[in-house]
Simulated assay, not measured.
Amino acid sequence: MDTFAGLALDHAFLARPVTTVARDLIGAHLTLEGVGGVIVETEAYHHLEPASHAYPGPTARNAVMFGPVGYAYVYRSYGIHWCLNIVAGEEPGSAVLIRALEPETGLAQMRARRGLEPLRSLCSGPGKLCQALGVTHEHNGLPLDAPPFALGAGQPQRVIAGPRIGLTKAVELPWRFGLAGSPYLSRPFPAGATISEPQSDATAS
């Protein structure tokens, strides 16, 4: 096993700075009832920055974000699409949005849910990803280290970082992370985005 082995849902892994967790989740394997693939794009959200759902403080909608790390925070975006987040960070109220996967398992189920689409389009966005995996609000608050979810280890990757997508607040923060060169991203990163080489120790902050 590689250096991420056994760490993807370890409390110490998820309780680090949320930007570090978001970066190190690139390359991890996420499935729901056996359907899923490799995480290739994430965004970090911290409770002290205004783009985060946790910024106003605890509410009925964001309550999961203020609980333990390692749980799913699922919400509907624009009243249309479900979005899946992993609660993470050093303090309550932070989470990592899973923006895109490289499909690996359950491809027939993904295509049935999404329609007949090219492989690269099945999970290339948070709404597409949730539809392909069958994520709904019933999964809100469930642990990611127990069925029906599984979050497995992945190898360190070359990661590109840039601004998050579709925001009007804190737009300057380079808190979107992607697998460099992946064709499965939701959209390309801007020219000049920073690329970092694989880190041998995923537990480092």
Rank of each mutant, 00 (worst) to 15 (best):
H29W: 10
Y78K: 09
G89V: 00
Y75S: 01
S121E: 15
D145N: 14
V96R: 00
W82Q: 06
E172K: 10
I160G: 13
A204N: 12
S121W: 13
M65P: 07
T194L: 15
L142N: 02
L97K: 06
A51D: 13
F149G: 01
L116A: 14
E43Y: 10
V21H: 08
A150K: 06
A161P: 11
S182R: 04
G125C: 11
V74C: 03
E41V: 09
Y73H: 00
D145W: 12
L32V: 03
G134N: 11
E104L: 15
A22D: 12
V87E: 02
R23N: 11
L119G: 09
L185T: 01
C83H: 01
P58T: 00
P174M: 11
P58V: 01
H81D: 14
G162H: 05
P50E: 13
Y78L: 12
P163R: 08
R120L: 13
V159T: 10
Y45R: 03
G127Y: 02
P188C: 11
G6E: 08
L142M: 14
A202D: 04
Q157C: 15
I86H: 01
G37W: 09
P56I: 03
G154I: 04
A112T: 14
G36M: 04
L101T: 00
T168E: 13
T168C: 04
I165L: 15
L142T: 02
Y73E: 00
R76G: 03
M110Q: 06
Y71N: 12
G152Y: 03
L173S: 07
A191Y: 09
A161G: 15
G125K: 04
R187M: 14
A72R: 00
Q157K: 11
D10G: 12
D201Q: 13
R99P: 09
